[in-house]
């Protein structure tokens, strides 16, 4: 019975030593490390060189999805055609296709929440994509991005430009200061939200290929790493009048396991009710020049 006593004693030590943590409230009765200091809104500046409409394409994918590399080829081809007018993010969700094939797990809870909300998880069809979170009747306009995307992207680019956006990132050690400038070109009366996320390129991890084989050294690009704001964004503190400008500034600490050289910051403004994206901007994490080449 000595074994049993030892086991019980060991468990007792573990459970009692680290049983529960108590968080003390601050003077205002709040259990927060900081409040209200993370983001500041101020008068924005005019956007000139980075003005114009861009298109936001979300691709829902996974290592166990054999058709996803075909979609990557198709998206890569579209990027060559549209340059940085096309901003792409690849989201690995918690579906069976998203399960990692090795130790590198590219899934995020926040991305999975998006996947569920837009109906990707329910439809169970991978790869799935959505442009600017647009609707088709009463559902989100999901499609399989394995064919030519030119028409869909070109159509989205021709829609009216209501806001200009630019984002910059200034990295100091592991903390970046993100600035998002928003300029209203047309009057917007709808409630808007600003969403900011981090994505990473050039991650080497296994992927199931279209012929069923496994490519151990597949290069995964545009991988969603974290959503800096709430996944549905934070309210855009602006009156929405034509010509008005607002600037949001916040700080974010990059996780050490991410390759800073390959990370990008993406910011987009969307309609708070319909989720439809009005415009999007992207910049590299490690320098403060926005990637925007005509």
């Amino acid at each position: 019975m000595i074994k049993g006593n030892i086991f019980i004693c060991a468990l007792a030590s573990i459970v009692l030593a680290w049983g529960c943590d108590k968080i003390e409230a601050n003077e205002n009765g709040l259990y927060e490390e900081y409040a209200g200091s993370a983001i500041t809104w101020s008068e924005g500046t005019s956007i000139t060189t980075n003005a114009g409409k861009r298109v936001f394409l979300e691709k829902y994918t996974g290592p166990k999805c054999p058709n996803c590399p075909t979609a990557d080829d198709s998206i890569h081809s579209a990027q060559r055609q549209f340059g940085n007018r096309l901003v792409v993010v690849a989201i690995h969700d918690y579906s069976s296709f998203g399960r990692p094939l090795g130790e590198i797990d590219l899934r995020t809870e926040k991305g999975d929440n998006w996947s569920s909300y837009f109906g990707v998880r329910n439809a169970g069809s991978y790869p799935s994509a959505i442009i600017n979170r647009m609707h088709n009747d009463n559902t989100f306009d999901l499609f399989m991005p394995t064919t030519v995307l030119s028409d869909k992207i070109a159509n989205a680019l021709t829609s009216a430009l209501s806001i200009n956006m630019e984002v910059t990132s200034t990295l100091t050690a592991n903390t970046t200061t993100i600035d998002v400038n928003i300029e209203f070109i047309q009057k917007v009366t709808d409630s808007l939200t600003l969403t900011i996320f981090v994505m990473e390129d050039s991650i080497i991890a296994p992927q199931t290929m279209p012929n069923g084989s496994r490519n151990q050294d597949y290069v995964h690009n545009h991988i969603l790493r974290d959503v800096v704001t709430d996944i549905w964004g934070i309210p855009v503190y602006a009156d929405g009048h034509e010509g008005s400008r607002r600037k949001a500034e916040l700080k974010y600490t990059i996780k050490p396991e991410w390759n800073k050289e390959h990370c990008h910051i993406v910011a987009f403004v969307s309609n708070a009710a319909t989720r439809e994206v009005l415009n999007v901007a992207e910049c590299k994490l490690s320098d403060n020049s926005e990637q925007f080449n005509e």
């Binding site: 943590d21 108590k22 490390e33 993370a38 704001t229 934070i234």
Partner: peptide, 21 residues
């Protein structure tokens, strides 16, 4: 965990207990 409260324009970062007993 960073949250934004309804009708507020600030972000909040919660101090979460890792151990709950």
């Amino acid at each position: 965990t960073i949250i934004s409260r309804q009708n507020e324009y600030a972000l909040y970062k919660l101090a979460l207990p890792a151990n709950v007993g």
